[in-house]
Simulated assay, not measured.
Amino acid sequence: MSIIGFIGSGNIGGTIARLAVAAGHEVVLSNRRGPDSLAGLVAELGPKARAATPAEAAAAGDFVIVTVPLHAYKSVPVEELRGKVVIDTNNYYPQRDGKIAELDDESTTTSELLQAHLPESSVVKGFNNIYFKHIAELARPSGDAQRSVLAIAGDDEAAKKTVADFIDSIGWDAYDVGPLAEGWRFQRDTPAYGGVYFAEKPTDGGFDVPGRQATAADIEPLLKAAKRYRDM
Rank of each mutant, 00 (worst) to 15 (best):
Met1Arg: 12
Met1Thr: 13
Ser2Ala: 12
Ile3Met: 09
Ile3Pro: 05
Ile7Ala: 01
Ile7Asn: 01
Ile7Cys: 01
Ile7His: 00
Gly8Trp: 00
Gly10Phe: 08
Gly14Arg: 01
Gly14Asp: 04
Gly14Asn: 03
Gly14Ser: 12
Ile16His: 05
Arg18Gly: 09
Val21Asn: 11
Ala23Ser: 11
Ala23Glu: 14
Ala23Trp: 03
His25Val: 13
Val28Thr: 09
Arg32Val: 03
Arg33Lys: 15
Pro35Lys: 02
Asp36Thr: 15
Asp36Asn: 12
Gly40Ser: 13
Leu41Lys: 14
Leu41His: 10
Val42Cys: 10
Pro47Asp: 08
Pro47Cys: 07
Arg50Cys: 07
Pro54Val: 05
Pro54Asp: 02
Ala55Asp: 14
Ala57Gln: 05
Ala60Thr: 14
Gly61Asp: 09
Val64Tyr: 00
Val66Trp: 05
Val68Lys: 04
Val68Phe: 04
Val68His: 04
Pro69Cys: 01
Pro69Trp: 00
His71Val: 00
Ala72Ser: 15
Val76Glu: 00
Val76Ile: 11
Glu79Lys: 15
Glu80Phe: 09
Glu80Arg: 11
Arg82Gln: 15
Arg82Ser: 15
Lys84Met: 07
Asp88Lys: 05
Tyr92His: 10
Asp97Ala: 05
Asp97His: 04
Ala101Gln: 11
Leu103Trp: 02
Asp104Val: 14
Asp104Ala: 14
Glu106Ser: 07
Thr108Ile: 13
Thr109Val: 15
Thr110Asn: 04
Thr110Pro: 07
Thr110Phe: 02
Leu114Ile: 12
Gln115Ile: 14
Ala116Gln: 13
Pro119Trp: 08
Pro119Thr: 05
Glu120Leu: 04
Lys125Arg: 12
Lys125Leu: 05
Gly126Thr: 08
Gly126Arg: 01
Phe127Pro: 00
Asn128Asp: 12
Tyr131Arg: 03
Phe132His: 14
His134Ser: 02
Pro141Val: 11
Pro141Glu: 09
Pro141Asn: 13
Gln146Phe: 13
Val149Gln: 01
Val149Cys: 08
Ala151His: 07
Ala151Thr: 10
Ala153Ser: 15
Gly154Met: 01
Gly154His: 03
Gly154Trp: 01
Glu157His: 12
Lys161Trp: 10
Val163Gln: 01
Ala164Asn: 00
Asp165Glu: 15
Ile167Tyr: 02
Ser169His: 05
Ser169Glu: 06
Ile170Arg: 03
Ile170Ser: 06
Gly171Ile: 02
Val177Phe: 06
Pro179Ser: 06
Glu182Trp: 01
Glu182Leu: 10
Trp184Met: 03
Arg188Glu: 12
Asp189Ile: 08
Asp189Glu: 14
Ala192Thr: 06
Ala192Arg: 07
Tyr193Leu: 02
Tyr193Pro: 01
Gly195Met: 11
Phe198Glu: 07
Glu200Gly: 04
Pro202Val: 08
Thr203Met: 10
Gly206Asn: 02
Pro210Gln: 09
Gly211His: 03
Gly211Leu: 05
Arg212Leu: 07
Arg212Ile: 11
Ala214Phe: 04
Thr215Trp: 13
Ile219Ser: 01
Glu220Leu: 04
Pro221Phe: 00
Pro221Thr: 00
Leu222Gly: 06
Leu223Tyr: 00
Lys227Glu: 14
Lys227Gln: 14
Lys227Arg: 12
Lys227His: 05
Arg228Asn: 09
Arg228Trp: 11
Tyr229Ser: 11
Tyr229Ala: 13
Arg230Met: 03
Arg230Glu: 05
Met232Ala: 07
